[in-house]
Design a protein around this nucleic acid. Structure first.
Lengths: 242, 242
DNA sequence: TTTCCACTCCCCAAAAATAGCGGGGGATCC
DNA sequence: GGATCCCCCGCTATTTTTGGGGAGTGGAAA
Protein backbone atom coordinates (compact mmCIF):
# COMPACT_ATOMS: atom_id res chain seq x y z
CA UNK A 1 0.00 0.00 0.00
CA UNK A 2 2.11 2.85 -1.24
CA UNK A 3 1.54 6.28 0.22
CA UNK A 4 2.18 8.48 -2.77
CA UNK A 5 2.77 12.07 -1.72
CA UNK A 6 1.90 13.43 -5.13
CA UNK A 7 -0.89 10.97 -5.83
CA UNK A 8 -4.56 11.77 -6.07
CA UNK A 9 -5.92 9.18 -3.66
CA UNK A 10 -7.77 10.25 -0.55
CA UNK A 11 -4.81 10.01 1.81
CA UNK A 12 -2.42 11.64 -0.62
CA UNK A 13 -4.78 14.55 -1.12
CA UNK A 14 -5.25 14.93 2.63
CA UNK A 15 -1.51 14.91 3.15
CA UNK A 16 -0.95 17.54 0.49
CA UNK A 17 -3.73 19.62 1.96
CA UNK A 18 -2.07 19.60 5.34
CA UNK A 19 1.25 20.68 3.89
CA UNK A 20 0.14 23.13 1.21
CA UNK A 21 2.03 26.39 1.26
CA UNK A 22 0.60 28.58 -1.48
CA UNK A 23 -2.85 29.66 -2.65
CA UNK A 24 -2.02 28.19 -6.05
CA UNK A 25 -1.48 24.82 -4.42
CA UNK A 26 -4.89 25.07 -2.77
CA UNK A 27 -6.49 25.92 -6.10
CA UNK A 28 -4.80 22.91 -7.66
CA UNK A 29 -5.91 20.71 -4.77
CA UNK A 30 -9.49 21.83 -5.02
CA UNK A 31 -9.52 20.75 -8.64
CA UNK A 32 -7.99 17.40 -7.77
CA UNK A 33 -10.58 16.97 -5.03
CA UNK A 34 -13.33 17.71 -7.51
CA UNK A 35 -12.03 14.96 -9.76
CA UNK A 36 -11.47 12.61 -6.85
CA UNK A 37 -15.03 12.94 -5.61
CA UNK A 38 -16.42 13.16 -9.15
CA UNK A 39 -18.54 16.22 -8.51
CA UNK A 40 -19.12 19.17 -10.82
CA UNK A 41 -17.77 21.88 -8.56
CA UNK A 42 -16.03 22.51 -5.28
CA UNK A 43 -15.55 25.98 -3.88
CA UNK A 44 -14.13 27.42 -0.69
CA UNK A 45 -14.65 31.07 0.11
CA UNK A 46 -14.89 33.57 2.91
CA UNK A 47 -18.14 35.32 3.57
CA UNK A 48 -18.42 38.90 4.67
CA UNK A 49 -20.05 42.02 3.43
CA UNK A 50 -16.82 43.42 2.02
CA UNK A 51 -16.99 40.73 -0.63
CA UNK A 52 -13.34 41.14 -1.54
CA UNK A 53 -12.08 38.24 0.52
CA UNK A 54 -10.24 35.04 -0.15
CA UNK A 55 -11.74 32.28 -2.21
CA UNK A 56 -10.86 29.48 -4.55
CA UNK A 57 -12.76 26.86 -6.44
CA UNK A 58 -13.98 25.53 -9.73
CA UNK A 59 -16.99 27.73 -10.40
CA UNK A 60 -17.04 29.36 -13.85
CA UNK A 61 -15.64 32.87 -13.75
CA UNK A 62 -18.85 34.17 -15.28
CA UNK A 63 -20.86 32.87 -12.36
CA UNK A 64 -18.51 34.23 -9.73
CA UNK A 65 -18.54 37.73 -11.16
CA UNK A 66 -22.30 37.59 -11.69
CA UNK A 67 -22.72 36.48 -8.09
CA UNK A 68 -20.69 39.42 -6.83
CA UNK A 69 -22.19 41.98 -9.19
CA UNK A 70 -25.75 41.14 -8.27
CA UNK A 71 -25.05 40.92 -4.56
CA UNK A 72 -26.35 37.36 -4.50
CA UNK A 73 -24.57 36.98 -1.18
CA UNK A 74 -27.53 38.67 0.46
CA UNK A 75 -30.21 36.41 -0.98
CA UNK A 76 -28.36 33.12 -1.39
CA UNK A 77 -30.27 30.63 0.78
CA UNK A 78 -27.13 28.53 1.09
CA UNK A 79 -25.29 31.38 2.75
CA UNK A 80 -28.26 32.18 4.98
CA UNK A 81 -28.67 28.55 5.92
CA UNK A 82 -25.01 27.98 6.66
CA UNK A 83 -24.78 31.12 8.72
CA UNK A 84 -27.45 29.92 11.09
CA UNK A 85 -26.29 26.35 11.40
CA UNK A 86 -23.33 24.43 12.62
CA UNK A 87 -23.70 21.19 10.73
CA UNK A 88 -23.28 20.81 6.97
CA UNK A 89 -26.37 21.51 4.93
CA UNK A 90 -27.80 19.83 1.88
CA UNK A 91 -29.03 22.51 -0.48
CA UNK A 92 -32.33 20.80 -1.09
CA UNK A 93 -33.24 21.07 2.57
CA UNK A 94 -33.01 24.83 2.51
CA UNK A 95 -35.80 27.33 2.07
CA UNK A 96 -36.05 28.17 -1.63
CA UNK A 97 -39.58 29.52 -1.40
CA UNK A 98 -38.80 33.21 -1.71
CA UNK A 99 -39.07 34.79 -5.14
CA UNK A 100 -35.52 36.10 -5.06
CA UNK A 101 -34.27 32.68 -3.97
CA UNK A 102 -36.00 30.92 -6.87
CA UNK A 103 -34.61 33.39 -9.37
CA UNK A 104 -31.20 32.91 -7.90
CA UNK A 105 -31.53 29.16 -8.12
CA UNK A 106 -32.58 29.28 -11.75
CA UNK A 107 -29.67 31.56 -12.54
CA UNK A 108 -27.28 29.20 -10.77
CA UNK A 109 -28.51 26.14 -12.62
CA UNK A 110 -28.22 28.00 -15.92
CA UNK A 111 -24.60 28.70 -15.11
CA UNK A 112 -23.95 25.01 -14.67
CA UNK A 113 -23.65 24.92 -10.91
CA UNK A 114 -25.77 21.77 -10.67
CA UNK A 115 -29.05 20.93 -9.02
CA UNK A 116 -27.51 19.27 -5.97
CA UNK A 117 -25.25 20.87 -3.41
CA UNK A 118 -23.71 20.34 0.00
CA UNK A 119 -22.16 23.14 2.04
CA UNK A 120 -20.12 23.13 5.22
CA UNK A 121 -20.03 26.29 7.33
CA UNK A 122 -16.71 27.10 8.97
CA UNK A 123 -16.01 29.67 11.62
CA UNK A 124 -12.71 31.05 12.77
CA UNK A 125 -11.46 33.62 15.26
CA UNK A 126 -12.58 37.24 15.06
CA UNK A 127 -15.90 36.40 13.49
CA UNK A 128 -14.39 34.81 10.43
CA UNK A 129 -16.95 32.87 8.44
CA UNK A 130 -16.29 30.69 5.43
CA UNK A 131 -18.06 28.05 3.40
CA UNK A 132 -16.91 24.91 1.64
CA UNK A 133 -19.39 23.74 -0.97
CA UNK A 134 -19.71 20.88 -3.40
CA UNK A 135 -22.27 20.78 -6.16
CA UNK A 136 -23.27 18.39 -8.87
CA UNK A 137 -26.00 17.32 -11.22
CA UNK A 138 -27.61 14.11 -10.13
CA UNK A 139 -30.65 12.54 -8.52
CA UNK A 140 -31.61 13.10 -4.92
CA UNK A 141 -30.82 9.48 -4.06
CA UNK A 142 -27.36 9.57 -5.60
CA UNK A 143 -26.54 12.81 -3.84
CA UNK A 144 -27.74 11.52 -0.50
CA UNK A 145 -25.61 8.44 -0.91
CA UNK A 146 -22.61 10.53 -1.84
CA UNK A 147 -22.91 12.96 1.05
CA UNK A 148 -23.61 10.18 3.50
CA UNK A 149 -20.48 8.35 2.37
CA UNK A 150 -18.10 11.28 2.38
CA UNK A 151 -19.51 13.46 5.13
CA UNK A 152 -16.62 12.97 7.52
CA UNK A 153 -13.96 13.49 4.90
CA UNK A 154 -15.63 16.64 3.66
CA UNK A 155 -15.74 18.15 7.12
CA UNK A 156 -12.02 17.53 7.45
CA UNK A 157 -11.26 18.94 4.02
CA UNK A 158 -13.28 22.05 4.80
CA UNK A 159 -11.43 22.37 8.09
CA UNK A 160 -8.03 22.11 6.45
CA UNK A 161 -8.92 24.54 3.71
CA UNK A 162 -9.86 27.10 6.29
CA UNK A 163 -6.75 26.45 8.31
CA UNK A 164 -4.56 26.95 5.27
CA UNK A 165 -6.46 30.00 4.13
CA UNK A 166 -6.00 31.60 7.54
CA UNK A 167 -2.30 30.81 7.46
CA UNK A 168 -1.72 32.02 3.93
CA UNK A 169 -3.96 35.04 3.86
CA UNK A 170 -2.18 38.25 4.75
CA UNK A 171 -3.86 40.94 6.78
CA UNK A 172 -4.44 38.56 9.66
CA UNK A 173 -1.39 39.57 11.60
CA UNK A 174 -1.59 38.72 15.30
CA UNK A 175 -1.55 42.38 16.32
CA UNK A 176 0.74 42.04 19.34
CA UNK A 177 -1.02 43.75 22.17
CA UNK A 178 0.18 44.37 25.66
CA UNK A 179 -1.27 41.94 28.16
CA UNK A 180 -3.89 43.28 30.53
CA UNK A 181 -3.56 42.98 34.29
CA UNK A 182 -6.05 40.69 36.06
CA UNK A 183 -7.91 43.65 37.46
CA UNK A 184 -8.14 45.25 34.07
CA UNK A 185 -9.49 42.02 32.64
CA UNK A 186 -12.11 41.86 35.36
CA UNK A 187 -13.07 45.46 34.84
CA UNK A 188 -13.45 45.15 31.09
CA UNK A 189 -15.31 41.88 31.44
CA UNK A 190 -17.87 43.36 33.78
CA UNK A 191 -18.39 46.30 31.47
CA UNK A 192 -18.71 43.84 28.59
CA UNK A 193 -21.55 42.01 30.29
CA UNK A 194 -23.50 45.19 30.80
CA UNK A 195 -22.48 46.48 34.22
CA UNK A 196 -22.28 50.21 34.71
CA UNK A 197 -19.09 51.57 36.21
CA UNK A 198 -20.77 51.86 39.58
CA UNK A 199 -22.03 48.28 39.47
CA UNK A 200 -18.69 46.95 38.31
CA UNK A 201 -16.87 48.80 41.05
CA UNK A 202 -19.26 47.42 43.64
CA UNK A 203 -18.88 43.91 42.27
CA UNK A 204 -15.11 44.16 42.51
CA UNK A 205 -15.38 45.81 45.93
CA UNK A 206 -13.35 48.82 44.89
CA UNK A 207 -14.20 52.45 44.48
CA UNK A 208 -15.55 53.66 41.22
CA UNK A 209 -12.50 55.86 40.83
CA UNK A 210 -10.19 52.91 41.07
CA UNK A 211 -12.21 51.05 38.52
CA UNK A 212 -11.86 54.04 36.29
CA UNK A 213 -8.12 53.90 36.53
CA UNK A 214 -8.17 50.28 35.38
CA UNK A 215 -10.35 51.13 32.45
CA UNK A 216 -8.10 54.02 31.51
CA UNK A 217 -5.06 51.83 31.81
CA UNK A 218 -6.64 49.11 29.71
CA UNK A 219 -7.74 51.68 27.18
CA UNK A 220 -4.19 52.92 26.91
CA UNK A 221 -2.75 49.43 26.53
CA UNK A 222 -5.27 48.54 23.87
CA UNK A 223 -4.88 51.81 22.04
CA UNK A 224 -8.59 52.43 22.42
CA UNK A 225 -10.40 55.72 22.07
CA UNK A 226 -13.01 55.04 24.71
CA UNK A 227 -14.44 52.35 26.92
CA UNK A 228 -16.62 50.80 24.25
CA UNK A 229 -13.64 50.62 21.95
CA UNK A 230 -11.50 49.05 24.65
CA UNK A 231 -14.06 46.36 25.41
CA UNK A 232 -14.50 45.66 21.71
CA UNK A 233 -10.76 45.33 21.16
CA UNK A 234 -10.27 43.14 24.19
CA UNK A 235 -13.09 40.93 22.98
CA UNK A 236 -11.88 40.57 19.44
CA UNK A 237 -8.35 39.85 20.64
CA UNK A 238 -9.62 37.16 22.93
CA UNK A 239 -8.34 38.94 26.03
CA UNK A 240 -11.73 38.78 27.66
CA UNK A 241 -14.59 36.33 27.25
CA UNK A 242 -18.22 37.18 27.80
CA UNK B 1 -15.49 -6.93 9.22
CA UNK B 2 -18.45 -6.57 11.51
CA UNK B 3 -19.78 -3.10 12.23
CA UNK B 4 -20.82 -3.42 15.83
CA UNK B 5 -23.21 -0.67 16.79
CA UNK B 6 -22.52 -1.02 20.48
CA UNK B 7 -18.80 -1.73 20.17
CA UNK B 8 -15.99 0.46 21.32
CA UNK B 9 -13.86 0.50 18.18
CA UNK B 10 -13.22 3.73 16.32
CA UNK B 11 -15.98 3.30 13.75
CA UNK B 12 -18.49 2.09 16.29
CA UNK B 13 -17.83 5.07 18.52
CA UNK B 14 -18.13 7.45 15.59
CA UNK B 15 -21.39 5.86 14.59
CA UNK B 16 -22.80 6.14 18.09
CA UNK B 17 -21.63 9.71 18.28
CA UNK B 18 -23.54 10.58 15.14
CA UNK B 19 -26.72 9.01 16.43
CA UNK B 20 -26.59 9.94 20.12
CA UNK B 21 -29.82 11.36 21.44
CA UNK B 22 -29.27 12.27 25.09
CA UNK B 23 -26.67 14.12 27.12
CA UNK B 24 -26.18 10.96 29.17
CA UNK B 25 -25.23 9.12 26.02
CA UNK B 26 -22.65 11.79 25.23
CA UNK B 27 -21.22 11.49 28.72
CA UNK B 28 -20.99 7.75 28.28
CA UNK B 29 -19.35 8.16 24.89
CA UNK B 30 -16.78 10.60 26.17
CA UNK B 31 -15.72 8.01 28.73
CA UNK B 32 -15.53 5.32 26.08
CA UNK B 33 -13.46 7.65 23.91
CA UNK B 34 -11.09 8.28 26.80
CA UNK B 35 -10.56 4.54 27.14
CA UNK B 36 -10.31 4.07 23.39
CA UNK B 37 -7.58 6.67 23.04
CA UNK B 38 -5.99 5.73 26.36
CA UNK B 39 -5.76 9.26 27.66
CA UNK B 40 -6.38 10.48 31.20
CA UNK B 41 -9.19 12.89 30.43
CA UNK B 42 -11.44 14.15 27.69
CA UNK B 43 -13.76 17.08 28.17
CA UNK B 44 -16.12 19.02 25.97
CA UNK B 45 -17.56 22.29 27.20
CA UNK B 46 -18.94 25.61 26.14
CA UNK B 47 -17.09 28.75 26.99
CA UNK B 48 -18.72 31.92 28.19
CA UNK B 49 -18.80 33.90 31.34
CA UNK B 50 -22.22 32.66 32.41
CA UNK B 51 -20.39 29.51 33.38
CA UNK B 52 -23.63 27.60 33.69
CA UNK B 53 -23.46 26.22 30.21
CA UNK B 54 -23.29 22.77 28.76
CA UNK B 55 -20.33 20.57 29.35
CA UNK B 56 -19.40 16.94 29.79
CA UNK B 57 -16.22 15.05 30.37
CA UNK B 58 -14.08 13.04 32.70
CA UNK B 59 -12.46 15.73 34.83
CA UNK B 60 -12.76 15.16 38.60
CA UNK B 61 -15.72 17.02 40.07
CA UNK B 62 -13.38 18.75 42.50
CA UNK B 63 -11.40 20.27 39.66
CA UNK B 64 -14.46 21.44 37.75
CA UNK B 65 -15.93 23.20 40.74
CA UNK B 66 -12.57 24.68 41.69
CA UNK B 67 -12.16 25.91 38.12
CA UNK B 68 -15.52 27.65 38.23
CA UNK B 69 -15.16 29.00 41.76
CA UNK B 70 -11.81 30.59 41.09
CA UNK B 71 -12.82 31.97 37.73
CA UNK B 72 -9.97 30.12 36.07
CA UNK B 73 -11.75 30.66 32.78
CA UNK B 74 -10.27 34.13 32.70
CA UNK B 75 -6.67 33.12 33.18
CA UNK B 76 -6.59 29.68 31.56
CA UNK B 77 -4.02 29.96 28.74
CA UNK B 78 -5.74 27.09 26.95
CA UNK B 79 -8.95 29.07 26.68
CA UNK B 80 -7.08 32.20 25.63
CA UNK B 81 -5.07 30.27 23.07
CA UNK B 82 -8.03 28.44 21.60
CA UNK B 83 -10.07 31.61 21.41
CA UNK B 84 -7.53 33.25 19.16
CA UNK B 85 -6.82 30.30 16.92
CA UNK B 86 -8.61 28.10 14.47
CA UNK B 87 -6.44 25.01 14.50
CA UNK B 88 -6.09 22.64 17.46
CA UNK B 89 -3.49 23.62 20.02
CA UNK B 90 -1.01 21.60 22.00
CA UNK B 91 -0.95 22.91 25.54
CA UNK B 92 2.81 23.00 25.69
CA UNK B 93 2.95 25.50 22.84
CA UNK B 94 0.91 28.03 24.77
CA UNK B 95 2.15 30.92 26.84
CA UNK B 96 2.47 29.76 30.45
CA UNK B 97 4.82 32.54 31.48
CA UNK B 98 2.39 34.63 33.52
CA UNK B 99 2.30 34.13 37.24
CA UNK B 100 -1.41 33.41 37.30
CA UNK B 101 -0.95 30.94 34.46
CA UNK B 102 1.81 29.07 36.28
CA UNK B 103 -0.26 28.84 39.46
CA UNK B 104 -3.17 27.58 37.44
CA UNK B 105 -0.99 24.97 35.77
CA UNK B 106 0.35 23.73 39.08
CA UNK B 107 -3.16 23.54 40.48
CA UNK B 108 -4.32 21.60 37.43
CA UNK B 109 -1.49 19.09 37.64
CA UNK B 110 -2.20 18.61 41.34
CA UNK B 111 -5.77 17.76 40.46
CA UNK B 112 -4.58 15.03 38.12
CA UNK B 113 -5.30 16.73 34.83
CA UNK B 114 -1.98 15.66 33.38
CA UNK B 115 1.02 17.49 32.01
CA UNK B 116 0.09 17.12 28.37
CA UNK B 117 -2.99 18.40 26.64
CA UNK B 118 -4.53 19.03 23.25
CA UNK B 119 -7.53 21.27 22.68
CA UNK B 120 -9.70 21.87 19.67
CA UNK B 121 -11.61 25.14 19.44
CA UNK B 122 -15.10 24.92 17.96
CA UNK B 123 -17.33 27.75 16.90
CA UNK B 124 -21.01 27.69 16.12
CA UNK B 125 -23.67 30.19 15.10
CA UNK B 126 -24.43 33.23 17.23
CA UNK B 127 -20.91 33.41 18.55
CA UNK B 128 -21.06 30.05 20.24
CA UNK B 129 -17.63 28.89 21.35
CA UNK B 130 -16.71 25.51 22.73
CA UNK B 131 -13.62 23.46 23.39
CA UNK B 132 -12.83 19.79 23.13
CA UNK B 133 -9.77 18.84 25.12
CA UNK B 134 -7.76 15.73 25.81
CA UNK B 135 -5.13 15.50 28.50
CA UNK B 136 -2.71 12.93 29.76
CA UNK B 137 0.47 12.32 31.63
CA UNK B 138 3.30 11.38 29.32
CA UNK B 139 6.44 12.56 27.59
CA UNK B 140 6.49 15.26 24.96
CA UNK B 141 7.46 12.73 22.29
CA UNK B 142 4.66 10.32 23.12
CA UNK B 143 2.12 13.10 23.14
CA UNK B 144 3.33 14.46 19.82
CA UNK B 145 3.06 11.02 18.30
CA UNK B 146 -0.41 10.58 19.72
CA UNK B 147 -1.76 13.92 18.52
CA UNK B 148 -0.14 13.50 15.12
CA UNK B 149 -1.76 10.11 14.72
CA UNK B 150 -5.25 11.01 15.83
CA UNK B 151 -5.49 14.65 14.80
CA UNK B 152 -8.09 14.07 12.09
CA UNK B 153 -10.24 11.82 14.20
CA UNK B 154 -10.18 14.27 17.08
CA UNK B 155 -11.31 17.14 14.90
CA UNK B 156 -14.24 15.05 13.77
CA UNK B 157 -15.11 13.96 17.28
CA UNK B 158 -14.99 17.54 18.47
CA UNK B 159 -17.21 18.53 15.57
CA UNK B 160 -19.77 15.85 16.33
CA UNK B 161 -19.81 16.65 20.02
CA UNK B 162 -20.61 20.24 19.25
CA UNK B 163 -23.26 19.27 16.75
CA UNK B 164 -24.95 17.02 19.27
CA UNK B 165 -24.64 19.55 22.06
CA UNK B 166 -26.31 22.20 19.90
CA UNK B 167 -29.10 19.79 19.04
CA UNK B 168 -29.66 18.59 22.57
CA UNK B 169 -29.20 21.77 24.51
CA UNK B 170 -32.50 23.54 24.99
CA UNK B 171 -30.98 26.83 26.14
CA UNK B 172 -30.29 27.94 22.60
CA UNK B 173 -33.92 28.63 21.82
CA UNK B 174 -34.99 31.60 23.98
CA UNK B 175 -32.38 33.89 22.45
CA UNK B 176 -33.06 33.73 18.74
CA UNK B 177 -30.74 36.69 18.55
CA UNK B 178 -32.99 38.98 16.60
CA UNK B 179 -31.22 40.15 13.49
CA UNK B 180 -29.95 43.71 13.36
CA UNK B 181 -30.83 46.00 10.50
CA UNK B 182 -27.97 47.03 8.20
CA UNK B 183 -27.93 50.50 9.68
CA UNK B 184 -27.80 49.13 13.18
CA UNK B 185 -24.90 46.93 12.19
CA UNK B 186 -23.07 49.91 10.72
CA UNK B 187 -23.72 52.00 13.80
CA UNK B 188 -22.49 49.35 16.23
CA UNK B 189 -19.50 48.60 14.05
CA UNK B 190 -18.39 52.22 14.03
CA UNK B 191 -18.80 52.44 17.78
CA UNK B 192 -16.83 49.20 18.07
CA UNK B 193 -13.87 50.68 16.22
CA UNK B 194 -13.75 53.66 18.53
CA UNK B 195 -15.89 56.33 16.94
CA UNK B 196 -17.90 58.59 19.17
CA UNK B 197 -21.58 58.98 18.40
CA UNK B 198 -20.92 62.28 16.68
CA UNK B 199 -18.16 60.83 14.52
CA UNK B 200 -20.22 57.78 13.64
CA UNK B 201 -23.18 59.93 12.67
CA UNK B 202 -20.99 62.07 10.47
CA UNK B 203 -19.44 58.99 8.87
CA UNK B 204 -22.86 57.61 8.06
CA UNK B 205 -24.07 61.05 6.93
CA UNK B 206 -27.02 61.02 9.27
CA UNK B 207 -27.94 63.13 12.26
CA UNK B 208 -26.59 62.15 15.61
CA UNK B 209 -30.13 61.68 16.77
CA UNK B 210 -30.87 59.12 14.10
CA UNK B 211 -27.74 57.27 14.99
CA UNK B 212 -28.91 57.29 18.56
CA UNK B 213 -32.17 55.68 17.52
CA UNK B 214 -30.27 52.87 15.81
CA UNK B 215 -28.16 52.26 18.85
CA UNK B 216 -31.19 52.21 21.11
CA UNK B 217 -32.96 49.87 18.75
CA UNK B 218 -29.95 47.58 18.60
CA UNK B 219 -29.63 47.72 22.35
CA UNK B 220 -33.23 46.66 22.71
CA UNK B 221 -32.88 43.82 20.23
CA UNK B 222 -29.75 42.57 21.92
CA UNK B 223 -31.15 42.95 25.39
CA UNK B 224 -28.21 45.17 26.28
CA UNK B 225 -27.98 47.53 29.20
CA UNK B 226 -25.91 50.19 27.46
CA UNK B 227 -23.94 50.89 24.33
CA UNK B 228 -20.83 49.07 25.46
CA UNK B 229 -22.90 46.03 26.32
CA UNK B 230 -24.65 46.16 22.96
CA UNK B 231 -21.37 46.30 21.05
CA UNK B 232 -19.96 43.48 23.16
CA UNK B 233 -22.99 41.29 22.57
CA UNK B 234 -23.08 42.00 18.87
CA UNK B 235 -19.41 41.11 18.69
CA UNK B 236 -19.66 37.90 20.63
CA UNK B 237 -22.68 36.81 18.62
CA UNK B 238 -20.83 37.46 15.43
CA UNK B 239 -23.31 40.10 14.30
CA UNK B 240 -20.55 42.62 13.75
CA UNK B 241 -16.86 42.25 13.01
CA UNK B 242 -14.17 44.74 13.83
C1' DT C 1 18.07 48.62 46.95
C1' DT C 2 15.99 51.12 44.05
C1' DT C 3 12.92 51.18 40.44
C1' DC C 4 9.33 49.69 38.41
C1' DC C 5 4.25 48.30 38.15
C1' DA C 6 -0.25 46.87 39.88
C1' DC C 7 -3.39 48.39 43.02
C1' DT C 8 -6.00 51.68 45.79
C1' DC C 9 -8.17 56.32 46.68
C1' DC C 10 -9.85 61.46 45.83
C1' DC C 11 -11.80 66.12 43.20
C1' DC C 12 -13.77 68.68 39.30
C1' DA C 13 -15.32 70.37 34.83
C1' DA C 14 -16.52 68.93 30.29
C1' DA C 15 -18.23 65.62 27.15
C1' DA C 16 -21.03 61.82 26.10
C1' DA C 17 -24.73 58.85 26.70
C1' DT C 18 -29.47 57.99 28.12
C1' DA C 19 -34.52 58.81 28.43
C1' DG C 20 -38.56 60.72 26.97
C1' DC C 21 -41.63 63.37 23.62
C1' DG C 22 -42.91 64.37 18.75
C1' DG C 23 -42.91 63.97 13.27
C1' DG C 24 -42.65 61.69 8.19
C1' DG C 25 -41.60 58.46 3.86
C1' DG C 26 -40.93 53.94 1.92
C1' DA C 27 -40.77 48.82 1.41
C1' DT C 28 -42.77 44.37 2.08
C1' DC C 29 -45.81 40.88 3.57
C1' DC C 30 -50.30 39.03 4.57
C1' DG D 1 -55.26 47.91 2.60
C1' DG D 2 -53.37 47.62 6.89
C1' DA D 3 -49.58 46.05 9.70
C1' DT D 4 -44.86 46.05 10.34
C1' DC D 5 -40.45 47.25 9.84
C1' DC D 6 -36.59 50.16 8.29
C1' DC D 7 -35.03 54.58 7.39
C1' DC D 8 -34.68 59.62 8.60
C1' DC D 9 -35.30 64.10 11.59
C1' DG D 10 -36.57 67.52 15.58
C1' DC D 11 -36.61 68.91 20.72
C1' DT D 12 -35.44 68.95 26.16
C1' DA D 13 -33.71 67.10 30.28
C1' DT D 14 -31.01 64.17 33.34
C1' DT D 15 -27.51 60.92 34.38
C1' DT D 16 -23.21 58.78 33.41
C1' DT D 17 -18.79 58.67 31.70
C1' DT D 18 -14.52 60.74 30.61
C1' DG D 19 -10.13 63.28 30.97
C1' DG D 20 -7.14 66.17 33.49
C1' DG D 21 -4.97 66.65 37.71
C1' DG D 22 -2.52 64.34 42.48
C1' DA D 23 -1.04 60.55 46.16
C1' DG D 24 -0.08 56.51 48.72
C1' DT D 25 0.65 51.22 49.39
C1' DG D 26 2.85 46.75 48.45
C1' DG D 27 5.31 43.37 45.75
C1' DA D 28 8.39 41.98 42.08
C1' DA D 29 12.08 42.65 39.21
C1' DA D 30 16.61 44.63 37.99
Amino acid sequence: MGYVEQGTGRDALFGRLETAETPEELQQLIELLRDHYSVDHIVYHWVNSNGDQYGCGTYPKAWVSRYLERGYLRIDPVVQGCYQRFHPVDWKRLDWSGKAARNFQRDAVEHGIGNQGYSIPIRGPNGQFAMFSLSSNCSDEDWDTFTEEHRRDLILVAHYFNQKALELEPGRKPEPSQALSPREVEALTLLGVGYSRAQAAETLSISEHTLRVYIESARFKLGAMNTTHAVARALSRGLIVI
